[in-house]
Design a protein around this nucleic acid. Structure first.
Lengths: 174, 174
DNA sequence: GGGCGATGGTTTCAGATGAAACTATCCGTT
DNA sequence: AACGGATAGTTTCATCTGAAACCATCGCCC
């Protein structure tokens, strides 16, 4: 059995088999390998790259919309955009109908970088995935979807932590 | 096909299907949900919790050994340990045979917290995994192992980025 | 058309983080 | 036993990050 729970009669925690920990280690290693790459070659941070990635496929988004599509918060987006503006990689035009909103798009310079990064990113992904069989890739896809949905569900549950805690300690709360 | 690469005849990047991105979003959501929990209830950061988690199952480790087992670097461990020492959750005894080395272990107070957290952590993991079938759990386990090994392999490759880049642009390097 | 709550976005401040410098101890060599 | 390089661990410094405060504009209501 792969997870701790399966054998959890007497509670025992082995970090190496604990899913949140494994996820975190794997992700950090993947991210930092890739980040180093983006950064060395293009001086892009991950937030900046994410903003460029979405603007590369859909233009004229507001910062709010970029945030929604990248799972970043508005502060992160604001900072990434500020830096990209300074480097003339994206441009902002105030929305004609709403003075608060800035419509963002790649400049030609930004587009050139985008066009160079995309094959690179895909190649990196392919290298990673080359360790998996076709079935495993499909399974990974499905499992990640399910886990994502499950996290959303759990987060949406009001007072998740409390509920869990109540489950574990039915009568006493501290 | 689940990944971008499979359809990469004309390079196109959809962030939502890009593995490193998906991993990162999923992990961050899992981690921050859990971190909020540890932090609210016990005033523990993730690094601190990791240190406690390994000391809970193996005592008298050095900071170096803790780092190795948690995939943290020595600075992170040093800071986490400093904070745990101050809170009297772990204790350090200088190694009798080597004055540089501190042997770390949980104090009774630390052990009490550990004993309270472990079932909680396992329960959280179980909630997450409850979205998956048995087969899917096994597949997840296998796939994560393979991906981890692949990342190691790629990182071990000298000058990974350069090699990739060379593959993509056989003749010109900027 | 003048307030007023809501929304888009930025700035500030304080704590977290990483890289590199630093300290202390150790071990092998002479 | 003294030097020099290696190792354990800490501190410093500069950057990053997140939360909350902030500013501007908007849409609604009177």
């Amino acid at each position: 059995m792969p997870n701790n729970l399966a054998t959890a009669e007497e509670p025992r925690l082995d970090l190496d088999r604990f899913l949140p920990y494994r996820l975190s280690v794997l992700t950090n290693r993947v991210s930092s390998a890739i980040a180093r790459h983006y950064s060395e070659r293009f001086g892009l941070s991950i937030p900046e790259w994410r903003v460029m990635a979405v603007l590369g496929s859909v233009s004229d988004l507001s910062a709010r919309e970029v945030a929604a599509r990248t799972a970043m918060d508005k502060v992160q987006v604001s900072r990434a955009v500020a830096s990209l503006l300074k480097a003339r990689r994206v441009q902002r035009k105030t929305d004609p109908g709403d003075g608060r909103v800035g419509r963002l798009s790649l400049t030609p310079r930004g587009r050139a970088i985008y066009d160079e990064i995309v094959p690179l990113a895909l190649h990196l992904e392919a290298l990673l995935l080359s360790a998996l069989s076709g079935d495993e890739k499909l399974a990974l896809d499905r499992v990640m979807l399910k886990l994502s949905r499950q996290v959303s569900l759990l987060q949406a549950t009001r007072d998740w932590a409390t509920i869990i805690h109540a489950n574990l300690h039915p009568a006493t709360d501290r």
